[in-house]
Design a protein around this nucleic acid. Structure first.
Lengths: 282, 282
DNA sequence: TTTTTTATGTAGTAAAATTACAAATAAATT
DNA sequence: AATTTATTTGTAATTTTACTACATAAAAAA
């Protein structure tokens, strides 16, 4: 079903002057779907039949149909408007802050989804599944994400290690082999230590998956598989927070896929891990 | 603005038999916003004035207004329907998995937003701002969230400690004072250790903020400030992942607010922290 | 200039929404 | 049980809205 906007765009040059006046009013008005045909014709300074001819040209069977379409699309426009003014201000109270964050997160998630290369990602899933050892490398705040990821994959029963300390990362990198997989999390993508470590890991044959928020970085270029969060850099104060959440969601996605293709064996292993934790809590 | 559904629910018992027949038809019909009043009255087997009386009772000024509301909410219902089929299947490839996760996350975020008590949360922000020491308690996966939170608040320059080990938590709890604030993260809300630790902290006068996903838990009941993620338990495999992301977003919200009311002094402190990290990376 | 085409409006009609009021039903009072 | 009162519902008339047929005006083509 074509949207009002699309219909206008495709028919604009075949519209008469009077008809364009009506379009003008419809676009101008806050809530055009509340206007009667009479009101609309008065506002547009044209006759009612001109209004009729317009919506017929646009492919609506009745004035009601036009109004319904406008009402439904208004909802979408409203969402877009909110999403555009989602900069967090100092005098926004907690609920507003949270709401704006939700908006930014939703946007970031859909932008990230656009950038996903399914083939590459599924290939990465295969490689993780067959990996001898799985390393999560991250420093600072990204270190927490690394730990979170490791914590999850650990439950599958394989060798999974999170490394936050740059020296330890270097040591591990020096002893990698071709059956090892490294998942590197970096917000900036330019941390010198990490770049060195990745270089060394790859030299030793390890497969490197990079999760970062910018494709124009040294780290991104080196990746065997690159997982990008966000396509646009908006320089908002909350950007780092949001991209962190998206990074976690990406790791969750990897995990979900690895479990899915792993079959019953893997699922049982995870179940055993869960039971082990539950037992301990008693 | 109340939704049609909400209006019905709040007015249902004050509706007459004829009026309920109309509601019945509106709910039944695929596209009720395309019905004329005459059609609707015929379908409902009542007179037209009965239809008028119904929408007046529901607070709509005209039949057109009711139709517009129904048309707009139909869009939402459509989204909800899509959102309801977002169970992640084993044969969903990575991009689909990620997409469904984004959907679930968006739903969870908006459900959480509904549950936010602004006054209480802003009060918590004030208390955190004035706190002598700030503790983040969490075990297992929630421990990573605790560390993430601590990492962030730490940059403000105060005393901020993440504690993942139950024994350490117990020790800290025993030495709390009335100027201490504890933020407890727990998915289940029933972890025995954590409950004991919270009890002890409160006994010593500490203020306890609980972040969990269910209000019917022991931990939730004990909270001085309760931050709930999700209102509804759907028992999906991905629920834990999603609620973890929402928990992080809640902590980000707290942090954003604390920084906002802290003014220039706090912002400078954070800036110094950032520079310190940047310098180290060179 | 005349003819043809295109654009627009006038006036009337049909349909839809709304109102005033009365009939019917149910509840309360005597 | 009868009468009054209140509530619910519908009938019929009125107003408003959407739509149509046709005429006029303006523009383009012959």
């Amino acid at each position: 079903m074509l949207s009002f906007e699309e219909r206008i765009n495709s028919k604009m040059n075949s519209l008469t002057i009077s008809e364009r006046k009506v379009v003008e009013q419809l676009k101008m008005h806050e809530q055009p779907f509340l206007l009667s045909m009479n009101e609309l014709s008065l506002l547009s300074k044209v006759s009612e039949p001109s209004v009729v001819r317009l919506y017929r040209k646009l492919g609506y069977a009745s004035y009601q149909e036009l109004k319904v379409a406008l009402a439904q699309e208004q909802v979408n426009n409203r969402f877009t408007l909110i999403a555009n003014d989602n900069d967090i201000k100092d005098d926004d109270l907690a609920d507003i802050v949270f709401d704006k964050m939700a908006d930014q997160l939703a946007t970031a998630m859909s932008m990230t989804k656009e950038k996903i290369n399914v083939q590459q990602m599924e290939e990465a899933v295969q490689i993780i599944s067959k990996a001898d050892r799985l390393f999560f490398f991250g420093q600072g705040l990204s270190g927490n994400i690394a730990e979170d990821g490791a914590h999850k994959f650990m439950r599958m029963g394989g060798t999974t290690i999170a490394v936050k300390d740059p020296h330890y990362q270097a040591i591990y990198a020096n002893h990698m082999s071709k059956d090892d997989v490294v998942i590197v999390i970096s917000h900036s993508g330019e941390t010198v230590n990490i770049i060195e470590v990745v270089k060394m890991s790859q030299k030793n044959g390890a497969f490197v998956i990079v999760i970062t928020s910018n494709s124009n970085t040294t780290l991104a270029q080196m990746a065997d598989t690159l997982l990008l969060t966000q396509a646009q850099e908006t320089e908002k104060r909350s950007d780092a927070m949001v991209s962190r959440l998206v990074q976690l969601a990406l790791i969750d996605t990897l995990f979900t896929r690895v479990v899915a293709i792993g079959g019953s064996y893997v699922k049982e292993a995870i179940n055993r891990s869960r039971l082990a934790v539950t037992r301990m809590k008693k």
